[in-house]
Amino acid sequence: MPEKFGAPERAALMVLMLENRKLLNTELKDQVRLAKAGREKLNEAGLIHTDNTVTPMVHEITDEGISWCLSDLVSGDLPPRSTSHARATFGLLKKFVLHHQERGDLVEVFRSRDLESLIRSVYEDLAVEPQDWIRLARIRPRLNGADKGEVDVALVKMMKTGTVHFAPESNTKVLTAEDHAAALRVGSEDLHLVAMEES
Rank of each mutant, 00 (worst) to 15 (best):
I66C: 02
I66R: 01
C69L: 04
C69M: 04
L70A: 01
S71P: 00
S71C: 10
S71I: 04
L73W: 06
S75C: 10
G76Q: 00
G76Y: 01
D77V: 08
L78F: 06
P79R: 10
P79S: 11
P79I: 09
S82A: 13
T83Q: 08
S84Q: 12
H85A: 13
H85G: 07
A86S: 11
R87I: 12
A88R: 14
T89W: 12
T89R: 09
T89L: 15
G91N: 09
L92W: 13
K95G: 04
F96Q: 04
F96M: 13
V97C: 04
L98P: 02
H100T: 06
Q101E: 14
Q101T: 14
E102I: 12
G104A: 06
G104N: 08
D105W: 08
L106P: 00
L106D: 03
L106Y: 03
E108F: 08
F110C: 02
R113V: 04
R113A: 07
R113M: 12
D114E: 13
D114A: 04
D114I: 07
E116Y: 03
L118P: 00
L118G: 00
I119L: 08
I119G: 01
R120P: 03
S121V: 05
S121P: 01
S121Y: 08
S121D: 09
V122W: 05
V122I: 15
Y123V: 00
E124V: 07
A127C: 10
V128S: 13
V128L: 14
E129A: 11
P130Q: 03
Q131P: 00
Q131K: 11
Q131T: 10
W133V: 01
W133D: 02
R135L: 10
R135C: 05
R135S: 14
L136A: 00
L136C: 03
L136Q: 03
A137P: 02
I139S: 02
I139F: 05
I139T: 01
R142H: 10
L143F: 11
G145K: 05
A146N: 00
D147S: 09
V151A: 03
D152C: 10
V156L: 15
V156Y: 06
V156S: 09
M158N: 03
M159L: 11
K160S: 14
T161Y: 09
T161F: 08
T163K: 14
H165E: 08
H165Y: 13
F166R: 00
F166C: 01
A167H: 09
E169S: 05
S170I: 13
S170N: 10
T172D: 10
T172M: 09
K173A: 15
A177F: 07
E178L: 12
D179S: 04
D179W: 07
A181S: 13
R185V: 15
V186N: 02
G187A: 12
G187H: 07
S188N: 12
S188W: 11
E189H: 10
E189D: 14
